[in-house]
Simulated scan of single mutants.
Amino acid sequence: MSDVRAHDLSVVLDTRTVLSDVGLQVRGGDWLAVIGANGAGKSTLLKAVAGVLPYSGEVLIDGTSVRRLKPRERARLLAYAPQSPVLPADMTVFDYALLGRTPYIPYLGRESRRDREVTASVLERLDLAPFAGRALGRLSGGERQRVVLARALVQQAPVLLLDEPTTALDLGHQQQVLELVDRLRLADGLTVVTTLHDLSLAGQYADSMMLISDGRVAASGSPADVLTEKLIDAHFGARVRITSGPDGRPGVHLERP
């Protein structure tokens, strides 16, 4: 299990400061949910940690600076699933998931039997084996989300970064995807960082939470520490009622003004 830390993380895009002096720490095997209003900087934070965007500050995996790693080395430590990935309609499910093995395939080389075995195994675990030969353009929304997750898991990286993994899914598929992530996290010892719009879902699954507002950390801690009526009112402009479930996890309920 690998821990993730970031210090003084800042991102400037087109002269605009999107993130400013953000710090985070996730223990190996834990799940951190990053929440915040639209435009707060959540996706930018994940992209910076993944090395997709340039940043100032430091990102460390088990004490190793991500900035000093070559792209293939970084991809063996961090698997990143973007919110809206490009899915070639004519590519098969198997071939798309196989792209996750790219960090292990030699330049100008071909995938090995091991690469294909790992890919087949992941598809089996995600109940996607029957769709292996199906074109991506013929999948439902929930199936596409699972395929994107499959490609990330095929990388066999100890850190999994998921940007809004439940976007555009109905309630049943949202639960299915998050249960799947949690089950794989516990089975494989993955460290998971997700952005999530649904505060109740974030509170049900995450070990810790971080609230981003205007590119800065507004609050961090346990779900009960972050999901408070005062903080949600201040940073989302929403009136809510917070309840505590049998397991002590907070539930967020909208209330009409």
Score class of each variant (00 low, 15 high):
96 Y>N: 09
137 G>A: 01
213 S>N: 08
194 T>W: 05
143 E>W: 00
89 A>W: 14
89 A>V: 15
218 A>L: 06
78 L>T: 10
199 L>V: 09
107 Y>N: 11
185 R>Y: 10
165 P>Q: 05
109 G>E: 03
141 G>E: 00
220 S>F: 12
219 A>D: 08
215 G>W: 00
157 A>H: 06
138 R>A: 05
119 T>D: 03
134 R>P: 05
202 A>D: 04
144 R>G: 01
160 L>E: 06
125 R>Q: 14
92 T>V: 02
208 S>L: 06
211 L>T: 03
145 Q>E: 14
116 R>V: 02
150 A>W: 07
163 D>Y: 13
119 T>W: 04
88 P>G: 00
117 E>A: 01
86 V>Q: 13
164 E>V: 07
130 P>S: 01
97 A>H: 03
96 Y>C: 09
167 T>R: 15
93 V>D: 02
110 R>C: 05
128 L>A: 06
171 L>M: 13
98 L>M: 14
94 F>K: 01
211 L>N: 03
103 P>G: 04
111 E>D: 13
158 P>L: 03
126 L>R: 04
175 Q>I: 14
216 R>D: 06
183 R>M: 11
143 E>G: 03
177 V>G: 04
83 Q>S: 03
125 R>G: 12
170 D>S: 05
187 A>S: 15
110 R>P: 00
109 G>Y: 08
121 S>W: 09
80 Y>N: 04
76 R>D: 00
180 L>A: 08
109 G>N: 02
148 V>S: 12
207 D>T: 11
178 L>F: 05
105 I>V: 15
109 G>V: 10
105 I>N: 11
196 L>Q: 08
157 A>Q: 04
84 S>L: 12
154 V>F: 07
137 G>F: 04
102 T>Q: 15
130 P>D: 04
142 G>F: 02
203 G>T: 01
110 R>S: 09
206 A>V: 08
110 R>L: 08
135 A>L: 06
141 G>P: 02
82 P>M: 05
151 R>Y: 04
179 E>T: 11
177 V>L: 06
133 G>K: 07
117 E>F: 08
115 D>K: 14
173 H>P: 04
197 H>G: 05
219 A>G: 07
139 L>T: 07
119 T>K: 01
90 D>M: 13
202 A>H: 08
169 L>A: 01
102 T>F: 15
135 A>Y: 06
162 L>P: 12
213 S>E: 08
189 G>T: 01
83 Q>R: 02
127 D>V: 10
152 A>H: 08
172 G>Q: 07
189 G>W: 15
139 L>R: 04
159 V>K: 14
87 L>I: 07
198 D>S: 03
96 Y>V: 10
137 G>I: 00
171 L>E: 10
131 F>K: 10
148 V>M: 07
79 A>Q: 09
84 S>E: 15
76 R>E: 03
181 V>K: 12
207 D>M: 10
184 L>F: 13
102 T>S: 15
178 L>S: 09
121 S>Y: 06
207 D>P: 08
198 D>Q: 07
199 L>H: 08
140 S>N: 10
140 S>P: 07
156 Q>F: 04
162 L>G: 13
214 D>F: 01
189 G>Y: 15
75 A>S: 15
